[in-house]
Design a binder for these strands. Structure first.
Length: 106
DNA sequence: CCGTTGACGCCAT
DNA sequence: TATGGCGCCAACG
């Protein structure tokens, strides 16, 4: 397991309930701001890991781009809604409000 | 070993 | 404002 992925998983695991973060932010924290795609790929690999709430990770627009990779397309939205996050048209409402900043939280 | 693809993001047109 | 292309890095065929 590469440190890059380990860091990704660790950050995603740190996301508190009812909050979300973006691939770009995670990538930036890891030092590869432009490698957001790799973060997404890591998420795909994390599918086998239960401790990684991949549903709390969205793109910079708050759009549920990865919903199609779950067991069923609506699972991601359902999980987020279960945590109090409001989603409309596959997009998170009040995205900035539910956005979690890993760097601000220690 | 080389080419293509992808849970993204930014810049150019 | 909307669409398209390029970059980045790793995995897969």
């Amino acid at each position: 397991m590469n440190d890059f992925y380990e860091n990704v998983y660790e950050i995603v695991r740190m996301i508190p309930k009812g909050k979300v973060t973006t691939y770009g932010e995670i990538a930036k924290i890891l030092g590869s701001a432009k490698s957001a795609r790799v973060v997404g790929y890591a998420m795909n690999t994390s599918h086998k890991l239960q401790d990684v709430p991949a549903h709390r990770v969205v793109n910079r627009n708050g759009l549920l781009t990865g919903k199609n990779h779950f067991d069923y397309p609506t699972q991601m939205q359902e999980l987020l809604e279960s945590e109090g996050i409001v989603i409309e048209n596959d997009k998170i409402v009040n995205f900035e409000t539910v956005l979690w900043n890993p760097t601000k939280t220690e």
